[in-house]
Amino acid sequence: MTDGQPLSLGNLALSRKEDFKTFANAPRREQPELLTRAELKALSAAARAAYNRLRREWHANLGPIKTPQLAALQEDLWDIVESNLQDGDKAKGAVAVDAFPGLGKTTSVLAFLREFHHREIAENGEYTAQGHERLPVCRVGLTGNTGMKDLNRAILEYFGHAGRNRGTATQFGHRALDCVLSCEVRVLALDDLHFLKWRKTSGIEVSNHLKWIANEFPVTLLMIGVGLADKGLFSEGTPSGDTVLAQTGRRTTRLGMRPFTIDSEAGRLEWRQMLLALEKRVVLADKHPGMLADDLSDYLFARSTGHIGSLMTLINRGCQRAVRSGTEHLDRDLLDGVKNDEASENARKELEAALESRRLTSRPRASRTAA
């Protein structure tokens, strides 16, 4: 909330420095007050509309939740970034966050980058010794048509450099290096790296260019994508690359994220903790303890297949419908009418059959005993 108005970050492009700073410096959202049905009914039409808008925005931004997966990834990222304090004459280790879609890669990395930005500014100030704006993080999103020149231009776009529209790939590269040095960037994050066509000429060029960045830029190169190993990131962009000799493979630490699983008691406990954390964040008048973690545990696992992105989408859309329809709680009847992503819907039937036949359960032993 700012000056009584809901905070809106919906019009940001994190590939620009001003928007990334806005994202990083935005105050944490305040959870709307949980009203009873009687209190909802007592609101005026205008007050109720304002309250429901707050809830719409809140439910659309429930994360990030510090799951074991997120915590483990961030610990590894801190290890790598903090160990990259070598002098400028030494190449720094790079990171590749490589995992399937829907597991929270980008969300987890952005949460880390936000914390890193805060720490660097707190320790070193908002401006460098030369008076330049300090930008600890540069975040660039790639597309399927990104070549070496496009990548350099994208870095210049982040800084709003005046020379980002005219020049050669080499000129763009040196301008990007000047920006990184002047603003004392410490982490260069490249998102959606899998969009590159690695086995095409442009992919090989970019692979070589990434090595140049790792050699010349005093930054930790943080790459995020899907199936990066299969696409040749660690074998120099060629299917037959010698991974033993490949420089990228030797310098890059590959990190992953796993889905939730329910084939062990530890996995079931993790799943329950996730649902309990979500329950606390849901703002619906008729919610009750165990609404997600007890009543809907198996159902939500089947609908999401243990992927946090699919789970968050389903809960978000379910809450929107519950508010709009006046249902004010989540149950199977309401959620059956809510569509989820195609991958989850396709895998749903087999999981549901196993859960309903009791061949599988998502509930830990203690919660089953209590029930």
Rank of each mutant, 00 (worst) to 15 (best):
R251F: 02
R251V: 03
T253R: 15
R254A: 13
L255K: 14
G256C: 03
G256K: 07
G256N: 11
M257N: 06
R258W: 11
P259H: 09
P259N: 11
P259V: 08
F260L: 13
F260K: 08
T261N: 06
I262D: 04
I262G: 04
D263L: 11
S264H: 12
E265R: 08
E265Y: 10
A266N: 12
A266P: 01
G267L: 09
G267P: 08
R268K: 14
L269T: 12
E270N: 14
W271G: 12
Q273V: 06
M274P: 04
L275P: 09
L276N: 11
L276E: 15
A277T: 13
A277C: 05
A277P: 05
L278R: 06
L278P: 07
K280N: 13
R281I: 06
R281K: 15
V283H: 06
V283N: 01
L284W: 02
L284Q: 02
A285H: 05
A285L: 06
D286T: 10
D286W: 02
H288A: 10
P289I: 10
P289F: 05
L292E: 02
L292M: 03
L292I: 06
A293P: 09
D294V: 14
D295V: 02
L296K: 08
S297M: 09
S297I: 10
D298S: 13
Y299W: 14
Y299G: 03
F301L: 11
A302E: 12
R303Y: 03
R303A: 14
S304N: 05
S304G: 04
T305Q: 13
G306V: 07
G306P: 10
H307P: 05
H307L: 14
I308V: 15
I308Y: 07
I308G: 09
I308L: 15
S310R: 00
S310Y: 05
L311R: 12
L311G: 09
M312K: 01
T313G: 04
T313C: 03
T313P: 01
T313M: 10
L314C: 01
L314W: 02
I315S: 02
I315R: 03
N316V: 01
N316I: 00
Q320P: 07
R321A: 14
A322N: 04
A322F: 00
A322Y: 02
R324F: 09
R324Q: 13
S325C: 01
T327K: 15
E328S: 04
E328C: 06
E328Q: 14
H329S: 13
H329N: 11
L330V: 01
L330M: 03
L330I: 00
D331N: 15
D331E: 12
R332V: 07
R332K: 15
D333I: 02
L334Y: 09
L334I: 07
L335K: 01
L335V: 00
D336P: 03
D336A: 06
D336Y: 01
G337V: 00
G337D: 01
G337N: 05
V338K: 01
K339R: 15
N340M: 02
E342S: 13
A343R: 15
S344N: 05
S344P: 06
E345N: 08
E345I: 10
N346K: 15
A347R: 14
R348I: 03
R348L: 10
R348D: 13
K349L: 13
K349M: 08
